[in-house]
Design a protein around this nucleic acid. Structure first.
Lengths: 203, 203
DNA sequence: ATAAAAAAATACTAATTAGTATGTTTTTAT
DNA sequence: ATAAAAACATACTAATTAGTATTTTTTTAT
């Protein structure tokens, strides 16, 4: 294989396996030899492509976790101009949860897991994760403001507050689900959030 | 000092310092020598009173974290019969957040931190934390049902779903707050949750 | 074809840390 | 007062793991 391609594909492999292990076991509990066992490569290969464990953490956030949130929760918000906003919110915050894989249900949100595991202690991780949540918040506010302008959302709604609550409750529920063995908590969340979104609709 | 008292007070000291360190640094990142440095006792004292790190983790959940949630969020729900339920909810979910210490704002909820750090991996921790959330959920549902019966809460509210959403959003917000340096996220949450609680009031 | 550079493997170092073994001090029961 | 037991301290072991140094293999440019 061409060297430049090989290098890129090895880096991607390490990146993906790192993400999987961080997601399943947490960042701190994952060690480099374990990651590399999953890639069938050696520790030497790891340190040839990455400076240290911190760097792979950063790159996993930048290249995988950020992309997952963007693709899953921000991009679907983008084409909002010819959509009914309350319906769009219901789609994103209830329909998508139903489509989660078992693994995603059991393991929670990769971003939220990292926020809670190392949000306080590592400032670089913290900033990237904050930017991610900020982007989501901004995209949501934009959509909510549009919905308000189009008379689809009641005028007494504070869009920034609502966006924060939608994100917070979604992440909180995904966290709490982790200690259960069934989806009752998601079912309850879906009922509750549907009720809430219906309540802010302009009749 | 009498031996039995001394033993108890040493155990309590180790327990409290362990909680503080787990809360600040996470469970996995906290080591026994660091805990014992804070108690000004030796490692030998630790292993005389506790079997291993896992046991102190269990006891911290049982004796400290559970008590904090109970005292802070379940006990205030108990004397609900002569209170207005929406007001009681507002008190617990908005007034109490305003009274948090800086540390509590920065470090999030000890229970939620543990849920997210080790909720998936350790079954004993998991069960204790689940029991804790279950107790909270049950206490909340009871109060909400009462509010519904007293015509203070709208009849179309699903009490179990609402309880789950209240707990989930509260924990989620406390988690996300950890990556910020200010209380904007709490301010937004308070506005949003106040709006929600007002929306379910029977007029 | 071959020298240089990149990729990857192997062997090693150094630090951390859970847990144990053993010794010393303090308290208690007689 | 003293033997036993509990409380605590010190010294050690063994395992883990991040990161480095060195060597081998593969690819590239000439």
């Amino acid at each position: 294989m061409k060297q430049s391609l090989k290098s890129k594909s090895t880096q991607d492999l390490i990146l993906n396996k790192s993400f999987e292990m961080f997601y399943s076991n947490g960042f701190k509990s994952t060690n480099i030899p374990d990651i590399m066992r999953k890639t069938s490569l050696s520790k030497g290969a790891f340190y040839h492509h990455f400076k240290n464990k911190h760097e792979i953490g950063i790159k996993v956030i930048e290249n995988i976790i950020t992309k997952r949130i963007q693709d899953g929760f921000i991009v679907p918000l983008e084409d909002y101009k010819n959509k009914n906003i309350p319906e769009l919110l219901l789609y994103i915050f209830t329909e998508r949860i139903k489509k989660f894989s078992e693994k995603e249900k059991e393991l929670g949100c990769p971003a939220n897991n990292l926020i809670n595991e190392i949000g306080c202690s590592d400032s670089e991780f913290r900033i990237l994760l904050r930017n991610l949540i900020d982007s989501w918040q901004i995209a949501l506010v934009k959509v909510l403001e549009f919905g308000k302008a189009k008379n689809q959302i009641h005028s007494n709604v504070n869009c920034s507050a609502l966006a924060t609550c939608l994100i917070g409750s979604f992440e909180g529920i995904r966290g709490i689900r982790k200690i259960y063995d069934n989806n009752q908590i998601f079912d309850n969340y879906i009922i509750g959030i549907t009720h809430y979104i219906n309540a802010i609709k302009k009749k």
